[in-house]
């Protein structure tokens, strides 16, 4: 952990985005009279001192990296994640206006796509995700978005509620994510056909639906974003929820950075997922509600899965005939 700051710095993207305040003119050559004192205070780690206060950070008077973190959080994280989320929403809106949702003519025959347990675990994960998103957004952006119009008294209440809710629901996300992973990982392993699907951009290039199995390339990418991003928010979240697990303040800063970035990526990707699951591809939502999708839907979007289903049904019926 000695070089933890390298990681933080990488995460902060300092090389790409130099700190905003550092860009200002700094021509003042006259030394601040207090500068030496402050340098000394900062350098306390090098020169051991004694204190009667017992605690992990008791010897640190000024957190050297606090200012960097504050700068990152206020100037960069909030700004760029705002851009990202707004960008994704605009793109989806634009796509929907130009292209519209996909629709197939229904056959009226239904096939089972998701079992009850799969549906329940999906919505458990989705519900917890939503609660964490709302409370998390209040915690991360509230100061800039909610506070100005709510005033400090109301914001204090909302922030406290969000913090407690976020901390409490966090562990539930881990449980739901693990359960979800176990249920769905088998169908999300990459296959050759996915690459072809991705090259054709799921049918946006080349016309017609490219073949896909139970999940298509895009869905698989979302699954792995969710898994890896989920792992990142979960581990960092556990550190933040139980700070006693780590030593000192710096891992907490690292956790906060990782947590924020991973969460924003997840939220942005979930917008795409929510769009495709509802307006984007008609009939998908029904599959996650009742578990049933129309045969025509299955044939259009997941033809390889549909054919496999048919093969299984045929094999079963012939086995039954033989048995009689």
């Amino acid at each position: 952990m000695r070089h933890w700051w390298v990681w933080v710095w990488l995460c902060l993207g300092a090389t790409l985005f130099p700190p905003v305040h550092a860009a200002g003119p700094s021509t003042d050559k006259v030394l601040n009279p207090g500068a030496e004192l402050w340098n000394e205070v900062r350098g306390r780690q090098a020169a051991p001192a004694t204190t009667q206060v017992q605690g992990r950070d008791s010897q640190v008077l000024v957190n050297e990296w606090g200012e960097h973190f504050r700068d990152y959080r206020r100037q960069r994280f909030v700004r760029y994640s705002g851009y990202l989320l707004a960008g994704v929403v605009s793109l989806l809106l634009l796509y929907h206006l130009l292209h519209g949702g996909l629709e197939v003519t229904e056959s009226g025959r239904k096939v089972l796509r998701f079992e009850l347990t799969e549906r329940i675990v999906h919505w458990l994960l989705a519900g917890v995700f939503l609660l964490l998103t709302v409370t998390g957004v209040v915690l991360a952006f509230g100061r800039f978005v909610v506070l100005p119009w709510s005033g400090p008294e109301v914001f204090a209440v909302i922030a406290s509620a969000s913090k407690e809710g976020h901390n409490l629901f966090g562990p539930l996300f881990i449980v739901a994510l693990l359960w979800f992973f176990v249920l769905f990982v088998g169908r999300n392993l990459p296959r050759l056909v996915d690459i072809y699907w991705l090259i054709r951009a799921g049918g946006m290039l080349g016309g017609g639906h490219p073949a896909a199995g139970f999940f298509n390339g895009g869905e698989k990418i979302w699954f792995w974003i969710l898994t890896i991003g989920g792992l990142a928010v979960s581990t960092s979240g556990v550190v933040l929820d139980f700070p006693a697990l780590v030593e000192g303040r710096n891992p907490l800063v690292l956790a906060l950075v990782v947590h924020g970035i991973a969460a924003v990526v997840l939220i942005a990707a979930s917008f795409g997922h929510m769009y495709l699951g509802t307006l984007g591809v008609k009939g998908s939502l029904e599959g996650m509600k009742s578990g049933l999708v129309d045969e025509a839907w299955a044939h259009a979007h997941h033809v390889l899965w549909y054919e496999e289903l048919n093969r299984k049904a045929q094999a079963e019926s012939s086995a039954r005939e033989q048995g009689q």
Partner: peptide
Amino acid sequence: FIGLMLLWLNRVLN
């Protein structure tokens, strides 16, 4: 919470 959500989701989805 997990218990309640499982029961509730089952009520809605089963």
